[in-house]
């Protein structure tokens, strides 16, 4: 790995991108575009949390929307019932993250001892349960009418909201990168690769799965919190299966097993979503953009199973190997 000083070069590149993005709202003042970019940041966070399970540990979750929704509802309900002050905002965030941690812990403890499809099924069922609960508990959630609430004035400003989402994304990205590169993170990858072998090396795999399930749930809930804050309105669609499918699409298209991949995927999908919906005047098919995504998804899985980030990484590695092989060949020639 190439380094500059004590820090990897890639870290500098990511930080540079972060700084460039921080300047955007000051030079490019288009509200709907800013809103779109905020959504990209939020879904980037959400998709990264999904990839912790799918790409790093090999756990499939079909109900990741549940954590997103719990986060969104948690903060919304607290803010709707209280004054929109910074104190209640922070309290709301803590409630949201705490609830998500408890739910992900329970779901994990119940099913992660078993084969991974049980976790997929249980999360699917739980997410469905939360969707119904959000519709029926009208006094708390407003049912399908949703909740409208106000947030502290500071975040009503689009630029401030933008910066909040960007800083969250950058901080979460770097924390998760450290996590995945820690000894614990390496064991997670080992579990993905070969569970039985990880066990016979003396690792107990069950606690690892629960830990990562909780971390992933909490990060997803934080994505939900930002989502609710950014639109200041919330309804039951945050629990919909579509939300989970979006995270899955973003992760697969961007690149499973990388952290930058889900962010790229989030950018592509959110942008395409926005762009294709605008084209609906041209042809009715664009209103059904999900059909187009289905095709893209199938093509990606067949031709680029590693996704965008994965394919680029592969190409880079191959070139490096070729270079090394050439150097070795030269050395051999000189030696002989």
């Amino acid at each position: 790995m190439r380094q500059l000083g004590k820090v990897q070069i890639s870290t500098w590149v990511y930080l540079l991108f972060g700084c460039l993005l921080a300047v955007v709202p000051f030079v490019y003042d288009n509200l709907s575009m800013l809103f779109l970019i905020i959504q990209i940041f939020i879904f980037g966070i959400f998709a990264m949390s999904y990839d912790l399970l799918l790409g790093y540990t090999g756990i499939v979750s079909f109900g990741h929307a549940m954590f997103f929704g719990v986060g969104a509802y948690g903060v919304s309900i607290v803010l709707e019932r209280n004054e929109p002050t910074l104190f209640f905002l922070i309290l709301g965030i803590l409630v949201a993250l705490g609830a998500a941690a408890i739910i992900s812990f329970i779901a994990g403890v119940l099913t992660l001892r078993l084969k991974s499809h049980f976790y997929a099924m249980l999360t699917l069922a739980l997410a469905g349960l939360f969707l119904v609960a959000a519709e029926k508990m009208r006094s708390l959630t407003g049912g399908s009418d949703g909740l409208i609430f106000t947030i502290p004035d500071f975040f009503k400003d689009r630029t401030n909201m933008y910066l909040l989402a960007l800083i969250s994304l950058v901080v979460i990205f770097f924390s998760l990168r450290r996590l995945t590169n820690s000894p614990l993170g390496r064991v997670l990858v080992a579990i993905r690769e070969n569970e039985q072998r990880t066990m016979s090396l003396g690792y107990k795999i069950f606690p690892y799965k629960v830990i990562i399930s909780v971390i992933s749930g909490v990060v997803a809930a934080f994505g939900g919190v930002l989502y609710a804050l950014s639109i200041r309105f919330i309804d039951t669609t945050v629990f919909a299966v579509d939300v989970t499918l979006d995270a899955l699409l973003m992760t697969i298209i961007g690149g499973v097993g990388t952290l930058i991949g889900p962010i790229i995927g989030a950018g592509l999908i959110e942008y395409a979503h926005h762009f294709l919906s605008e084209l609906s005047d041209v042809h009715w098919i664009f209103e059904r953009w999900i059909i187009l995504f289905g095709i893209v998804y199938i093509l990606v899985v067949i031709f680029f199973p590693m996704g965008i980030a994965g394919s680029i990484k592969n190409m880079y590695m191959k070139r490096k190997h070729k270079k090394e092989a050439k150097v070795q060949q030269k050395d051999n020639q000189i030696a002989s």
């Binding site: 450290r178 996590l179 590169n181 820690s182 000894p183 614990l184 993170g185 390496r186 064991v187 080992a190 990880t198 090396l201 003396g202 690792y203 606690p207 830990i211």
Partner: peptide, 18 residues
């Protein structure tokens, strides 16, 4: 390395780079 790590009993360390 994973085998060595297991033998050294570094199992749940998540703060430092490996």
């Amino acid at each position: 390395r994973l085998a060595v790590q297991s033998n050294e009993k570094i199992r749940y360390q998540m703060m430092f780079h490996f």
